[in-house]
């Protein structure tokens, strides 16, 4: 039996989610309690030790992050729920934490639940939360990428380039290591474009801090500090030059 709790300041949100949990096909899940403010939420988690917490981001004048700050060693899996908070969403994506958008879609809830049941790997939860709390309010410095051994956190400044390989992405790091991650290059582009990363080609996202030189040509190519060279799409050349020029 999986014990779940909901922490949300608005009653109708709790009602909606519990209705959905009751009607879900998965009878393994049991709603073990709800809380409507941060303090009650912390107490609830400490008392019940739930497997799963549905945690709202904005809880009255506090946030779901305050709940996590009080529980640094928790092993509960967290699924955030929020209506619309661009910055929070970005922070969740950086830590590879799950979230559901309100109003919650039954299909998306089921998908999140089955993902939870598939990966019972708890090893990284506290690291994920630590990184999340560091990243709130300022730019996250590390990015969490899912691997076979759980989430691994890499400093963004160690990434030289990302290369698309179908639905996978190869990450090339400054220590010459490589990782293959089952995420599309587009997802990385969305996360990293604020970090001076630039998509020079359909299949390459480059950290412009590692550019050694640009060589002219139809699109030309970039020489990077790891001695690799990356072809630039002729359609991206102009924008790239603009970016390089402003550096």
């Amino acid at each position: 039996m999986i014990r779940a709790v909901i922490i949300d300041d608005e009653q109708h949100c709790i009602d909606r989610l519990s209705t959905l949990l009751h009607s879900t096909k998965d009878k393994e899940i049991q709603l073990a309690g709800t809380a409507q403010n941060v303090d009650d939420g912390i107490a609830l988690i400490n008392r019940i030790k739930p497997h799963l917490v549905f945690l709202d981001v904005q809880i009255a004048d506090k946030t779901g992050f305050d709940v996590l700050r009080a529980l640094p060693a928790t092993t509960s899996r967290i699924i955030f729920t929020t209506a619309h908070d661009k910055y929070a969403l970005q922070a969740f994506r950086f830590c590879a934490l799950d979230y559901l958008l309100k109003p919650i879609d039954a299909d998306e809830l089921n998908a999140a639940l089955s993902k939870f049941q598939e990966e019972k790997n708890e090893a990284n939860i506290s690291e994920q939360i630590t990184e999340l709390l560091k990243g709130i309010g300022n730019k996250p410095r590390k990015i969490g990428v899912p691997t076979l051994n759980g989430i691994v956190f890499i400093p963004v400044t160690d990434i030289i380039r990302c290369h698309a390989d179908g639905n996978y992405t190869e990450i090339h790091l400054s220590d010459k290591k490589q990782m293959v991650v089952s995420k599309t290059l587009k997802e990385f582009e969305l996360l990293l474009s604020d970090y001076n990363f630039f998509r020079v080609h359909n299949s390459d996202l480059v950290n412009l801090d590692f550019v050694k030189s640009y060589n002219k040509g139809k699109g030309g190519y970039l020489l990077l500090e790891d001695q690799s060279s990356v072809e630039v799409s002729s359609r991206r050349k102009e924008e790239l030059l603009k970016k390089l020029g402003s550096m």
């Binding site: 060589n215 139809k218 030309g220 190519y221 020489l223």
Partner: peptide, 8 residues
């Protein structure tokens, strides 16, 4: 057709 890289 990536001749500039080829030259390198």
């Amino acid at each position: 057709g990536k001749d500039s890289l080829a030259i390198v």
